[in-house]
Amino acid sequence: MTRKQIFIFGAGYSGRAFARANSEAATIFGTTRSPEKFEALRQAGIVPLAFDGTLTPEIGAALRKTTHLVISVAPEDAGDPVLNAIRATIIADMPALEWIGYLSTVGVYGDHGGGWVDEAAECRPVSKRSMMRVAAEQEWLRLGEDIDRPATVLRLSGIYGPGRNALVNLENGTARRLVKPDQVFNRIHCDDIAGALWYLADGNRGGIFNVTDDLPAPPQDVVAYAASLMGVAPPPEIPFDGAELSPMARSFYGENKRVANAAIKAAGYSFRFRDYRTAFDYMWKSGDWRDGEARSPMKR
């Protein structure tokens, strides 16, 4: 079997979780806009490179040997910055490429009034950023067809994990329990993003998959559950209509849906954390909830 060389455009929170789960001794390159983040990438097992939207000689050299390409960069007004920079390289100068994985968002579905959606559901993006995501998804899938390589879109729900969760928010005093009647969200632990990515990459599987938990739930319930584990009183409920929120935060509450994950289960992936309760129980018991970087690698 050929050893993988993986290239991650946008090696942020999810990309670093993916790299920490590397049990194959694969070589992993990853980009960041900020050289100040190079050390965090190295600690996750990533060879760091700077990417500001321009294809550099260093990136080009790594791409020529890349077998698996992962994109975790948000589209911009001018389009997908990675596609804009390397489309020609993918077509003409990546002879080893076997698979493309694009990290997207369940935000592409928009608002479905709390109803269930799966990968066949109509995309009704509400926000501009989600509209751009739909366009980027289509471009990556079309490129995969053009070069006859499997391309996979992973639609992620609300991401949490060590260093980024309600336990941390309760500890630092920033947790709030906003209540909007009948509002629910799905979530996904970063280890299951990593696990799903590795599973799909290992099998060179193409298509669209929702990577999300089994339990869409009101956000205030998650905070209350975390408080119960910590043995502290949950913060008071705050009616959504009177809450002070940024425009982006408020826009999230404008989309209400329950996202199904049957397709990736049918493809053979087994979730490590089926819901937030399972994940929070594990994080609290293990102490693996404070720092998202200083963790032992997840074993696949």
Rank of each mutant, 00 (worst) to 15 (best):
L154T: 04
N172A: 03
E145L: 14
L167T: 03
Y160A: 06
G163V: 03
P162R: 10
W140K: 11
L170I: 07
P162W: 03
L143H: 13
G163N: 07
D146A: 15
R155E: 10
G144F: 11
Y160H: 09
L167Y: 07
G158E: 01
L156F: 15
L170P: 05
R155I: 09
G173H: 00
L156D: 05
L143Y: 13
R142F: 05
R142Y: 01
L143R: 11
N172K: 14
G161Q: 11
A166T: 12
L154G: 14
E139L: 13
G161N: 09
L170V: 06
L143M: 08
D148L: 11
L141Y: 01
L141G: 02
W140I: 10
P150C: 12
P162K: 06
G163K: 06
E171W: 02
E139I: 03
I159T: 04
R149E: 05
E139C: 06
N165T: 01
I147N: 02
I159S: 03
N172M: 04
L170F: 05
E171A: 14
T152I: 13
Y160M: 01
N169F: 02
T152W: 01
R149P: 07
Y160P: 05
A166G: 00
L143V: 07
I159K: 08
G161M: 09
D146Y: 11
E145N: 13
N165M: 07
A166Q: 13
W140Q: 13
E145K: 15
R155M: 07
N165L: 02
S157A: 14
N172C: 08
P150W: 10
R164F: 01
L143I: 14
E171C: 04
G173S: 01
G163D: 04
L170Q: 09
G144W: 10
I147P: 00
G161D: 06
D148C: 08
E139P: 00
L167H: 06
P162V: 02
I159H: 01
